[in-house]
Computed example of a mutant assay.
Amino acid sequence: MLERDTTFILGAGASFDLGFPLGDTLRDRIIELLAVEDPNASINFSDAEMGKILQTRSVSEAGTNASPDRLEVYRRAAATIRAGLPFARSIDTFIDGLRGREHIEFLSKLAIATVILRAEAGSPLTPRHVQAANAADLRAQQLKKLLASWHVELSQILYDGHTADTLDDVFAHASFIVFNYDRCLEEFLAVSLMRRFGIDRKRAVALVGNCQVVHPYGQVGAFAPDAEGFIPFGGHEVQQLVDVAGRIRTFTETMESDVGDKIKDTVAQADTLVFLGFGWLAQNMALLQVGQRLTNARQVFATTMKMEAGEVAVVRDQIYEILRRGDYTPDYVDPAPDPPEFITDRGDCKALMANCWLRLTRR
């Protein structure tokens, strides 16, 4: 059980255990998704779902007679994305760098939505309903993958010490900033609550809804069934993808919205910060910068898998600056508190959660 207000900050690496792509893989899948059958002779997209959406949208925007010309605009936008994306550190920085180019922005967001929703469908969180002689073996393999995730350690930290009578307070000291578009955190919390405490899905989803989860760049559909824009985890209809794309935000859009302030408040109020699978990209660090807020952090935990010691030192200093505890931070009105304890496990998310759970749960 958490005894102190703790904010978990999740990057792409935090979803990897559950079958979601890291930055390079996401880039490659987007490039593949936006390929055309023959760039010299056709404007038909190789991916049938993508082609159907863009053909329908082209007719809607330009009319039947002019739709081939509009579809050609999308084909050129797709070519620009495929050519330029490998030179960007992330799809988010790529989109933001070309902000104002409407077709490129829409097509990039549409591709993100498609890739992530397909990853949800293929993740071990999505039940497999198969009619096969080895169906039981397939379900066992799926459960094994699910239990291998670091999320299991998270659920133990959150739920130990609680009973079915205290579940309304299970997330009282937990909040999450999720830089990913997927909803695997919310789905895992719901599934694990159902299994751990023997409650139904409606009750579990309601409890998850009481937990503060902020997605700086939006997400591929609302998680709660009664929320606007709801899409079931692991499933979608083709016509929903355009709406999903509209729910994805760029860095600039986030900074200009009230989401940016919510992120900063969540960071500033935490006694403990836990960075999991985070990539330390400059624009993401900027979103976490608390501005003039006072901060409470006493401890910061972070995964720094495969990072050199010098790079880890840079990360530590950046975190101190975010929290207004750095060497070059403008002074507080009162004497500035000391920098928080910085604890890094050079392994992955599972290693950090397994090796640091006592320190995470102490008062």
Rank of each mutant, 00 (worst) to 15 (best):
T6E: 14
A12S: 14
G19I: 11
P21C: 03
G23D: 09
D24I: 13
D24H: 09
L26K: 03
D28L: 05
L33K: 03
L33M: 02
A35S: 12
S46P: 01
S46R: 06
D47P: 02
I53M: 11
Q55C: 07
E61S: 10
A66Y: 01
S67V: 13
D69P: 00
R70Y: 04
R70A: 13
A78V: 01
I81G: 03
S90L: 03
I91A: 09
D92R: 05
H103T: 06
E105S: 09
S108E: 09
A121W: 00
T126L: 01
Q131A: 04
A133W: 09
A136V: 14
L147K: 08
L147P: 01
A148D: 15
A148W: 01
L154G: 14
D160I: 04
G161D: 13
A164C: 06
A164N: 11
L167Q: 06
V170N: 09
A172Q: 12
A174H: 08
F176C: 12
F176I: 15
I177M: 10
E186L: 12
E186H: 10
S192Y: 02
F197T: 02
F197C: 08
F197A: 13
G198F: 07
R203I: 13
C211T: 13
H215K: 13
G218V: 11
A222L: 07
A227K: 14
E228C: 00
G229D: 11
P232C: 09
Q239S: 09
L241S: 10
V242E: 15
V244Y: 04
T250P: 03
E253P: 00
T254V: 14
M255K: 11
E256S: 06
E256T: 01
K262M: 10
I263R: 07
I263K: 10
D265K: 07
Q269D: 11
Q269C: 05
T272Q: 15
W280C: 07
A282H: 08
Q283A: 11
A286W: 04
L294K: 04
L294G: 05
R298I: 06
A302W: 02
M305G: 00
M305S: 06
K306H: 11
V312R: 13
V314K: 13
Y320F: 15
R325F: 05
G326N: 01
D327Q: 03
D331E: 04
D334Y: 00
A336R: 03
P339K: 02
E341G: 04
R346H: 09
K350C: 04
L352K: 03
A354N: 04
